[in-house]
């Protein structure tokens, strides 16, 4: 991307650099984590950028509402900063895909699950709902339309709701990758490829742990990563040591080594999932080196999504009396 093109982002990057300073750093996360109760944690949260939301929330204990509001605020900000760019759209597709999954599953069960719809995507949830209800698929983006058609065909053939998720997850990955390519967001494409690899790695470990068979793994693997699905499939039959060996020449060597060691010790894949997220966070930090361009903006949104998840882990843990050490085990690294 040329400097003249990058300069389109100058104002946005300036604003983002200021906002980055308001992200919760390790110290603030530590304080939140060490709070003795939910009330104390809310007090700590009130000293941060979340103060307004905590104060205005009808129920400050409803941390989901607060975090959802915060993330919506971030997407709105990106749209406001870059009105001519579709950068925020990259992060909104997942909400439409979620709504499509909910509506398709509700359709096949003949039940109403409207309360699960999230109105934060590119297309309003109501529009998607009426389009699906009236079978006017061509009036939503082509990729969604094709995704829904493929998901319906797959479900009708196999009568397994899992395939709806799998087909639509593939649609989402392909659509986001395509948008990132068209927008020239190389940094995001690299991030996405790593994300796909890590999702496939986690799927491989989960299917191995559950002993669900190679076909289950094949269905779960997403294309579009730096490692082809064919890299993962043969590893289903191998033991954990061979799996670690297979990843030794990939960038995910440390994630796999430590994640598998933790799994063999505890029987849980929590550490592997955390390490995978931390790996992405390390990649995300490269954005700090870019003076101009979309990278700092992308990194900020993803850092905020990570922060919101960490806050949710802490608050839900506090609410349910989970020990601080146990909460710490699950917290992802912060961007700042």
């Amino acid at each position: 991307m040329s400097i003249s093109q990058d300069s389109r982002y100058a104002y946005a990057v300036g604003r983002i650099r200021v906002l980055e300073n308001k992200l919760l750093d390790k110290t603030k996360m530590q304080r939140l984590q060490n709070a003795k109760s939910v009330d104390e944690a809310l007090l700590v949260l009130s000293e941060t950028d979340y103060a307004d939301l905590v104060a205005k929330a009808p129920n400050p204990y409803d941390i989901d509402a607060i975090t959802t509001e915060e993330i919506k605020r971030v997407y709105l900000l990106i749209r406001e900063l870059l009105p001519k760019e579709a950068l925020a759209d990259l992060f909104l597709i997942k909400y439409d895909i979620h709504n499509l999954k909910v509506l398709l599953k509700a359709h096949y069960q003949k039940k109403d699950f409207d309360y699960l719809l999230v109105d934060a995507g590119l297309v309003p949830a109501e529009t998607i709902k009426s389009v699906l209800k009236n079978d006017q698929l061509p009036s939503i983006p082509k990729e969604y339309y094709e995704g829904v058609k493929a998901a319906k065909a797959a479900y009708e053939e196999r009568q397994d709701p899992k395939v709806i998720d799998e087909v639509l997850d593939r649609t989402q990955t392909a659509m986001v990758a395509d948008m990132a390519s068209k927008g020239g967001h190389e940094f995001y494409r690299r991030l996405l490829a790593a994300q796909v690899d890590l999702v496939n790695l986690k799927s491989l470990a989960r299917v191995k742990r559950l002993g669900r068979g190679r076909a289950f793994l094949d269905d779960s693997l997403l294309p579009g990563g730096t490692l082809a699905p064919s890299f993962f499939t043969p590893l289903y039959g191998s033991d954990w040591a061979q799996l670690v060996q297979a990843f030794s020449l990939t960038p995910y060597k440390a994630v796999v080594e430590q994640g598998v060691a933790a799994y063999l010790e505890s029987g849980q894949l929590t550490t592997l999932e955390k390490l995978a997220d931390n790996f992405q966070m390390t990649m995300l930090r490269e954005a700090k080196m870019f003076a101009l361009g979309p990278e700092p903006i992308i990194a900020y949104v993803m850092a905020k999504e990570n922060e919101v998840r960490n806050i949710r882990i802490i608050m839900i843990g506090k609410k349910n009396g989970v020990a601080t050490a146990e909460i710490a085990e699950r917290l992802r690294e912060s961007y700042v």
Binding site: D64, P161, R330
Partner: peptide
């Protein structure tokens, strides 16, 4: 319940419920 609590913390409530809304 503890595992479910952790899943609930890591996944947003809508995504978690979407995952289990269609039991087979």
């Amino acid at each position: 319940y503890r595992s479910f609590l952790v899943a609930r913390a890591v996944m947003s409530p809508e995504v978690l419920e979407e995952a289990i809304m269609f039991p087979t």
